[in-house]
Design a binder for these strands. Sequence first.
DNA 1: GTTTTTAGTTTGATTAATCAAAGTGCCGTA
DNA 2: TACGGCACTTTGATTAATCAAACTAAAAAC
Lengths: 219, 219
Amino acid sequence: MPSATVENYLKCILMLSMDCDQSEVPMGLIANSLGVTPGTATTMMKNLQREKWLTYKSRKGVTLTSKGRRLGMKMIRRHRLLETFLVDTLGLDWSEIHDEAEELEHAISEKVLERLDVFLGNPQYDPHGHPIPTKGGVIRKLPQKNLLNLAMGKKVKIESILDQGSDFLKFAQKKGLMPGKLVEVIQRDEMADSVELQLEKKSKFSLGFKSAEKILVSG
Amino acid sequence: MPSATVENYLKCILMLSMDCDQSEVPMGLIANSLGVTPGTATTMMKNLQREKWLTYKSRKGVTLTSKGRRLGMKMIRRHRLLETFLVDTLGLDWSEIHDEAEELEHAISEKVLERLDVFLGNPQYDPHGHPIPTKGGVIRKLPQKNLLNLAMGKKVKIESILDQGSDFLKFAQKKGLMPGKLVEVIQRDEMADSVELQLEKKSKFSLGFKSAEKILVSG
DNA sequence: GTTTTTAGTTTGATTAATCAAAGTGCCGTA
DNA sequence: TACGGCACTTTGATTAATCAAACTAAAAAC
Ligand SMILES: [Mn+2]
Ligand SMILES: [Mn+2]
Ligand SMILES: [Mn+2]
Ligand SMILES: [Mn+2]
C-alpha cells in the first residue's frame, strides 16, 4: 500500500530519531539524508501527516506515530535481513550490499521475508553489526562506546560500523576493522585528531577522530 | 535506467510476440494482458518508440527493436530465476510465486542475479517448466504438443504449464499435473469438450479442452 | 535591539503513468 | 459501395514525486 518513497522516508526518519534522539526530527536532516531539496521534504511531510504516518510541526520537525514507527521498523528489518542474505548466502562483499538492499526492501513481501529469516537461521545482526529488529518491531540498542570515547590500553571487541559508504567499508575491511575483531587504542593524539590502533596479528595504524567515532565496540 | 513500468511492457510484448508469433503485436493484447486501458497502451507505445525500444505502426501494432528484445529477455530471465529461488530455496508453493517475482524482478541487480544463478546451480527451467533464457538472451522453445493435440493412448511426460493463475496451479498440483510427471490421455469426448487422463499411481480424472491445451508434454 | 544568517516554507512548473470519454479508421457484410 | 461495429487513437484531466527560486521566521551575531 505505501509507496517505496513513503517507505524510504519513514525508515529514514526513524533512523534519524534513533540516533539524534530528540522527539522531533528537523527537515534539514531528512532532506539531506534522502538527497532531496528542503521544499520537497516539507511538502512530503504534510502528505505523510495527512495519512497519519507522523505529526508535523512547522519549523520544528516531525515525530512518527506508532503506525509510522511500525512501518519504519519493518523497513529496517527488511533491509538488514536482505543484507545478511546477500553476504552470507550469495557471497557479496559487505561494501556493495547497501544499495542493493535499498531497492529489494521495497519489493519483498512479508511472506518471503519471513521465509528468508528462517532460511538464514534468524540472524540477530547484519554484516555491519547492526541489530535486526524482531518481527514485532523490537530492536537492540547499539553499544555506546566507540574507538574515540574509549579508555586507552584496553582490548575491546568491534561490534558495529556506523558508516554505510562503500569506500569507508572497503577501507575498514582491508584494515580488519570488522565486527568480532579485537582491537586496542594504543595512543591518542589530540593535535592530529587521530588515534593509533593495534589489531590482533596486524600492524599498527592510525585513524582520524571522525572515523574512530564510527567504530562501535564493547567489553 | 528503464522504469519498472517500461520493463513490464517490454517483457509482456516479448512474451506475446513469442506465442502469437506474428511480427506485429496489436494494442489490444498488450492493454489486456497488462490490465490498462487501450488509450494508455497507445500512449505508452509512442513513448517506447521515442526511446527506441520498439517500432510502432498506428492501428497495426508494435515490433521490438533488438534493444527492446534484449531488455524483455533479461526480464524473463530475472523472473524465472527468482521463481526458481522462491520455490527451491525458500520453499514457497509454485502457485504463490508469480506475483512475488513480478515485483522482485525490477529490484534485483545484474550482479545479484548472476550470483543467484550460480547459487541455484544454473537451472534450465523454472518451477512451471518454463525455460530460463541464458545470460546472453537465448531461450529454448516450448514443446508443441499438449494434452489436447496429442495422440491418445500414449504415455507422455509433462513439460510445462502455460497458466500462471494461482487457482489453476493449485488445482494442477492437487491432481499431480506437474513437470516431470507421466500422463496418458485415455479418452476424448468432443461433445463434452473434455479429455480423460490417467496419471501414474493416481485415479483417472477429466479436464476441459481449454485446460488440456495449457499442459505441454513431450515424448 | 537591530541586523544578518540559516533553516524552513511556498509557489509554480515538470515528468511519468494512468483513466474516461469522445473521436476516427478500417474490415467485413450486405 | 455503403454501413455498422470493433479496435484503436486522441484529448483533457489526475496523482505522486520532484525541483528551482522566491519568500519568511527564528536564531545568532553584533
Ligand atoms: Mn529503499
Ligand atoms: Mn547494514
Ligand atoms: Mn514485473
Ligand atoms: Mn514461471
